[in-house]
Simulated assay, not measured.
Amino acid sequence: MKKIMTRLYRHFITTSRTARKAFPAITLMEIQAKIAEGERTHRAEARMIVESSLNLRAVLNGVTSRQRAHELFSHYRMWDTEENIGVLLYVNIADHKVEIITDRAVGRAIPSAEWQAVCQTMTREFANGTFHDSTLAALEKLNSLLTDHFPDADGKRNELSDRPLML
């Protein structure tokens, strides 16, 4: 019971202002640029979503950050790319969680341990309040993995927006 009350409290007090402080406009612009830069070297489609907190009903129903990331992956149709190579980088500020959800082709090509390393690049530094640099470093690793497995030689079209979403 204490665990759920603690989580409920964290989600109650974590606001969009908290998320904007962690990810100000300049950071969001650099994230967008880093995603676009990577997509010039690989065929995958990467998207980042930052959510300050879940609504209290979701918290009471036990929705995890991973479940929420899957929901957003579906909602934003990240699975609807030509080669099934969408990748979602999801950050939940209140839960202090980073999740990576991949489409089928990416999931088959790149083991989950590789994605965990990308997530740890962020979470390790998030604890120190270093959101900007750690997010860009994680995106660099993400782009490198995708370039190794899905290099782009033909200059494919951009199927999903590179702009990070703040929810």
Rank of each mutant, 00 (worst) to 15 (best):
N143D: 04
I93N: 14
I35Q: 00
K156L: 13
C119N: 02
R57Y: 13
M29W: 02
E99Y: 08
S16G: 10
V59C: 04
T130V: 13
Q120P: 05
A44L: 04
T123A: 08
L167S: 11
M29E: 07
L139G: 00
G107A: 12
H149G: 14
T15E: 09
T135W: 07
D154Q: 08
H11A: 10
A22I: 12
M122D: 09
H149T: 08
D148P: 05
L139H: 01
T6N: 05
L8Q: 02
T81Q: 05
V118C: 04
S144Y: 06
I31L: 00
A94C: 10
F73A: 06
I100P: 12
S112A: 07
L60M: 09
T121V: 11
K2T: 03
W115T: 00
M78L: 08
S65F: 09
N143K: 00
V87P: 08
L60F: 08
H11I: 04
T41C: 14
P151T: 03
M1R: 05
T135D: 06
Y90S: 09
E30S: 02
H75M: 08
A138V: 04
S52Q: 15
V106K: 01
R7Q: 06
G155Y: 01
D152G: 02
A153K: 10
P111D: 05
M122V: 06
T121H: 15
R10W: 15
P111C: 10
S16Y: 11
R57W: 14
F131R: 13
R108P: 11
G62E: 10
A33W: 13
R40I: 07
F150P: 10
W115P: 00
T27R: 01
H70E: 05
L167E: 06
R124M: 10
K141M: 15
F150W: 13
L28T: 10
L8G: 12
A69N: 03
L60V: 05
I49D: 01
A36Q: 09
V59E: 09
S53F: 11
S134K: 01
E71K: 13
I4P: 14
R124I: 15
D154S: 08
T123Q: 07
L72T: 14
R124V: 14
A153R: 10
L142T: 02
A117Y: 12
M166T: 09
Q32F: 11
L142I: 06
G107M: 08
K3F: 07
G107T: 07
A44Y: 13
I31Y: 00
L136S: 02
M78A: 00
R77Q: 12
R104K: 02
I4G: 09
A25V: 09
F73H: 03
F23A: 07
T27S: 06
E71G: 00
A25P: 12
A19P: 01
Y9M: 15
P24T: 04
